[in-house]
Computed example of a mutant assay.
Amino acid sequence: MNHSSASRSAPGSLTERRKAVTQLDIARAAAELFTEKGPDGTTAEEIAARAGVALRTFYRYFRSKQDAVAPLLSSGGDRWRALLSDTGPDVPLARALESAAVASLLPSGDVGEQEGLRWTRGLLRAAQEDSALRAVWYRVNMESEKQLLPVVARLAGPEADPLEARLIAAAATDAIRVALESWATMDPNAAESRHPADLVVRCLRQLTGGIELLACQE
Rank of each mutant, 00 (worst) to 15 (best):
167 L>W: 07
192 E>K: 04
163 L>G: 09
170 A>K: 09
150 P>I: 01
96 A>H: 08
146 K>D: 07
157 G>V: 01
35 T>M: 08
208 T>F: 05
87 T>H: 06
213 L>I: 08
206 Q>A: 10
81 R>S: 00
118 R>T: 13
110 D>H: 11
79 R>W: 05
163 L>Y: 03
5 S>K: 15
195 H>T: 02
129 E>S: 13
42 T>S: 13
76 G>D: 02
27 A>E: 10
175 A>L: 10
32 E>I: 04
124 L>N: 10
193 S>N: 13
200 V>K: 14
134 R>M: 08
165 A>Y: 05
74 S>G: 10
111 V>N: 05
4 S>I: 10
64 S>K: 09
47 I>Q: 08
52 G>K: 10
47 I>G: 01
36 E>Y: 02
60 R>D: 00
10 A>C: 03
15 T>R: 14
1 M>I: 02
140 V>F: 03
161 D>V: 05
37 K>T: 05
64 S>M: 06
50 R>K: 15
217 Q>W: 02
154 R>A: 03
1 M>K: 04
193 S>E: 05
63 R>V: 04
143 E>V: 03
204 L>Y: 07
50 R>M: 04
174 D>S: 12
27 A>M: 07
105 L>V: 07
41 G>F: 01
79 R>N: 07
65 K>N: 10
94 A>E: 13
208 T>I: 02
6 A>G: 07
19 K>M: 08
152 V>W: 00
15 T>L: 09
189 N>Y: 02
215 A>W: 02
149 L>R: 09
150 P>W: 05
171 A>D: 09
115 E>L: 10
187 D>S: 12
136 V>I: 13
117 L>N: 03
192 E>Y: 10
35 T>D: 14
82 A>Q: 13
101 A>C: 03
45 E>R: 15
156 A>F: 05
135 A>T: 04
67 D>C: 03
211 I>E: 09
215 A>G: 08
161 D>A: 12
13 S>M: 04
67 D>N: 14
127 A>F: 01
191 A>N: 09
91 V>P: 06
